[in-house]
């Protein structure tokens, strides 16, 4: 039981950062961005390049991955999404899927489709009776919790965070009140990119690195964000843990390859009965 809880928490930790990035981007730009998965992959490959080709330390590789991902996702906004700001959410969604496929294919073109890994020291799992875990896994959970705390502080207390929340809440009102919304949008993309880059590295530590790694995480990440109430970063944090636990609990009687399906079923049930998510307030439709 403890093992299931721990694994669930680990699953949740892996999808928590992308879920926050996704929900923040959705809050401000109002469309589900399908390209976040591809940028997780970017982060994972950037970390791998820094770690295995340059031989950098892991923490330095993490910073490198975060910067590269933030830069590229910001570029994707400048080149693709910015000229389409007035388009409908469906159009933007289609475009974001195209971006996801382009980014993934470029990665495949450069690095090939083979499975790769980071240059990690092999660590023996630590055991307590039947309960086993590795130091790496503790690190992942610890780092994710630290970053979530940091994001909360930024959103709550800094001027930028307040501007982000205001813009997410009501774009026009924020603009009228003198918030520079284009700066806020750029900051959100960059912050999302940092989170995605870091999660790419963490996934590289936890699992393996391959071109489709981000795509497979898309559905669980969406599930976490919708579960927590889309647009709410705090909801996304709790949603991730719940999705992670659900994946692990169903793993007891379903083939592990059906993990993705769990996320989908959660989305479907939730959208039927509580479209605003567990912690969201009902959206007022005008």
């Amino acid at each position: 039981m403890l093992q299931i809880l721990f694994n669930g928490l680990l699953n949740g930790a892996v999808i928590a950062l992308p879920a926050i990035a996704f929900t923040m981007l959705f809050g401000i730009l109002k469309f589900p961005n399908f390209s976040i998965g591809a940028f997780i992959t970017v982060g994972a490959y950037a970390a791998m390049v820094a770690n295995t080709y340059f031989g950098w330390q892991l923490w330095l590789s993490a910073i490198f991955a975060m910067l590269i991902t933030a830069l590229l996702i910001w570029l994707s906004d400048q080149l693709v999404f910015k000229p389409l700001r007035s388009a409908t959410s469906i159009t933007l969604l289609v475009v974001s899927i195209a971006v996801a496929f382009i980014v993934e294919s470029i990665i495949r073109l450069i690095f090939g489709g083979d499975i790769q890994g980071l240059d990690l020291e092999l660590t023996r799992p630590i055991r307590f009776g039947g309960f086993r875990f590795t130091i790496d896994q503790l690190w992942i959970i610890g780092i994710v919790m630290l970053v979530m705390l940091l994001v909360s502080i930024i959103l709550k207390y800094t001027q930028l965070g307040k501007a982000m929340r205001a813009t997410s809440d009501n774009f026009d009102l924020a603009e009228v009140r003198g918030i520079n919304t284009s700066h806020v949008i750029a900051a959100t993309w960059l912050m999302g990119g940092l989170l995605l880059g870091l999660s790419g590295l963490l996934i590289g530590i936890d699992l393996v690195i391959e071109p489709q790694i981000g795509w497979f995480l898309t559905i669980p990440v969406f599930a976490a964000a919708i579960l927590g109430g889309i647009g709410s970063p705090y909801g996304a944090m709790i949603g991730s843990v719940l999705v992670g636990l659900a994946e692990e609990l169903t793993g007891a009687f379903l083939a592990p390859s059906y993990k993705v399906a769990v996320g989908f079923v959660i989305i479907a049930i939730l959208l039927m009965f509580r479209p605003q998510g567990l912690f969201g307030l009902p959206e007022i439709k005008k």
């Binding site: 469309f31 469906i90 390859s257 059906y258 399906a261 989908f264 989305i267 479907a268 959208l271 479209p275």
Partner: peptide, 28 residues
């Protein structure tokens, strides 16, 4: 039917998930 109370863009997620599940079932 899932789209009763959904915003249009959520239907995109549901249909994409449906396709992934079909593929997983076919594989497994």
């Amino acid at each position: 039917f899932l789209s009763i109370r959904l915003r249009d863009d959520f239907l995109a997620i549901v249909t994409l998930g449906f396709a992934e599940i079909v593929r997983l079932v076919l594989l497994n």
